[in-house]
Nucleic acid binder design. Structure first.
Lengths: 207, 207, 207, 207
DNA sequence: CATGAATGAGCATTCATTCAT
DNA sequence: CATGAATGAATGCTCATTCAT
């Protein structure tokens, strides 16, 4: 009598998750470039070789961590929006900020691997999948902008990308310590930027 | 009989420059992570060990390249501004964009090393120096914003950082290939953002 | 209630054969050094661990493939002889050549493992068995030489080994690419060698 | 004042030789497939990385060992010939035999690396160089055959390759233990084969 | 001041084999 | 019997750094 295949599969997935979480932890501690398979394996309670039962390649492991991260990002941005009655776009962008601000390595990971020129190795399909995940987030923000009356539908995507670009820039400056060194505060900057978005709205309405 | 100490020192600086320029070249070609001291040495016409006469550490070499880069950035932004009669802030921000867009590795270098928690090795003084260099750039942009009537003097720095943040975000998204994957175009985004700055100006004036 | 032991045993042998054939296929494709147990198992429709139910060791699997190969060699040499009415020895030697020439890995396998000092792991009995298989081939060739009047019975074995030695040398030079690099052709060499054997015969007869 | 470049270069060559000799020793002990760079380094009194100062690649090390071996082979065959007044071809072939018989790994090495299909990686030029070295040996043997009146000049090369083929076959059978298992003796086989060459000569003359 | 040999730790990956299920 | 996860040692190779010359 065989073990139920579903249970077997779910155990496998659980273990993959264990390794993925260990990888995340190590990425946070040592940075992505500094994380070795050896160390990830040890952190997950495995020997080096065992990792390759679950991930064919270090890059495949990267990709899985990243996919998980982008999934969580989408969920968090959507949740942040759902909690808001007005100013949904501001809520979404704040969600984007909060998500990456509170996670040590996700931001670095996302911009290191995802479609970047440098550390290729992702299969094209995988690359497309990850691109699609980010696109979904952008579409959601675009929808919020349109709902709030901050942009006409045909310009919403353009503006959503622009706003997300600013948030990513803020994250970059914060994580690398520049913002602090320039005597600026992330939250204050965020408040200013988001209020500018709203102001623009009122300007548009008045016309 | 000793050589004049000044001459000695200037020769030393000259050779440091030779090595730094070689490093820059290699960084551009192979990326910063992919550049080995061996290769930089060879490109500079030295053997491996000689590098360590001028730079105690690979990171110190990084820092020197970065200092040079920030110096050049400042010069370019100032030059871009000087060429403009109106919309000086837009010209400065465009200069910021152009500088990093046209240099393969400077952006990567700047945000990898500069003040970040990860790749330590910078002495605190050096760190302060590099921060100061960036600050000068921000101050210049702030001045332009004030000159253009885009911000009151006491808010100019805050806005300058915000605008630079957006440009850095755009660079990040461009260099990692995300912008393209989202179907957006860097130049178009830049145009939109800069025209928004100007529009806001007019709004302020009308009040 | 137990299964009839004979049937059990024959099933076991059948499965061994399945694995052995898969191993052969993989050996041909990847070379003997490049074949992993994993890959052989997959080609046989088994998982890795299952192989070890049938073969205690990778080397034991090697040995089984080799035994099968020597068996087939004997059959082919005998068949080649049976088809010939005259010059039976030449036919046998040509059969020896053809057998190894047309099989990608058998020659490599035979001389890699068989009795060599290097890759031990063959039990002495097994070693003796394999030696015996080769000996049978040599005896057959010796018989042909005697039948053809090319050697007196007491010298036939000595000459058979000499002739086989030459064929093995030709295979070695062909498979390693040397013959081609020396500007020589295997078939032409073979023709010359075999005709020399016949000529010697006539010489002996004339005396 | 710099070190004399000649001395420096000769030291380098000497150390290369040390490593090459260590490699040879390890090849003999463990077989070529079983020799790791680590082990060779240790045997040479170096750490692993140091090997790569002298040889860019494991294969380059292989190639150097092989080149050295083929050079020595040529010298030994020529020397064996020079010592003989009559039957120079027999002397050359005996030299071929003796050379490889007395060296544990040279034979395996030669046929493993040299132009074989399996372990490529040799640059084409290198491959050609090594082929040329063997060709020189063959030409020498061909010259001896012609001198001895054993072959007309236009057939000498063909016959030289045939004879060398036989010797290589004998080496193969000896080194893998087969000859002994067949109850045959290498020296006796060699005597028979060489005397056949001579006999053929007389036959030709009588005609 | 410059050389380049040498170090030694590190890397991703592979693989024969074992064993709990 | 069969599975496939897990082991642990091994492999070729790289690289920042040191130091005798």
């Amino acid at each position: 009598m065989e073990v139920e295949p579903d249970r077997q599969e779910s155990v496998r997935l659980f273990k993959r998750r264990l390794i993925r979480d260990a990888a995340k932890r190590i990425f946070s501690e040592k940075g992505i470039g500094g994380a070795s398979v050896r160390e990830i394996a040890k952190a997950a309670g495995y020997t080096t070789g065992a990792i390759y039962t679950y991930f064919a390649t270090k890059e495949e492991l990267y990709a899985d961590v990243l996919r998980d991260s982008l999934d969580a990002l989408h969920d968090e941005v959507v949740a942040a929006t759902a909690a808001a009655t007005a100013d949904r776009a501001a809520a979404a962008l704040r969600g984007l900020w909060t998500f990456y601000d509170s996670r040590r390595s996700d931001f670095e990971l996302g911009f290191y691997l995802y479609g970047g020129a440098r550390p290729v190795g992702l299969t094209p399909e995988l690359n497309r999948e990850l691109n699609g995940l980010l696109d979904r987030v952008m579409d959601h923000i675009a929808g919020c902008l349109a709902d709030d009356g901050l942009a006409e539908p045909e310009h919403a995507h353009h503006l959503a990308v622009s706003a997300a670009t600013w948030v990513f820039g803020l994250l970059l400056m914060t994580k690398t310590g520049r913002l602090r060194s320039l005597g600026e505060d992330a939250e204050a900057q965020l408040d200013t930027y988001l209020s500018t978005l709203t102001t623009r709205n009122e300007t548009r309405k008045q016309r």
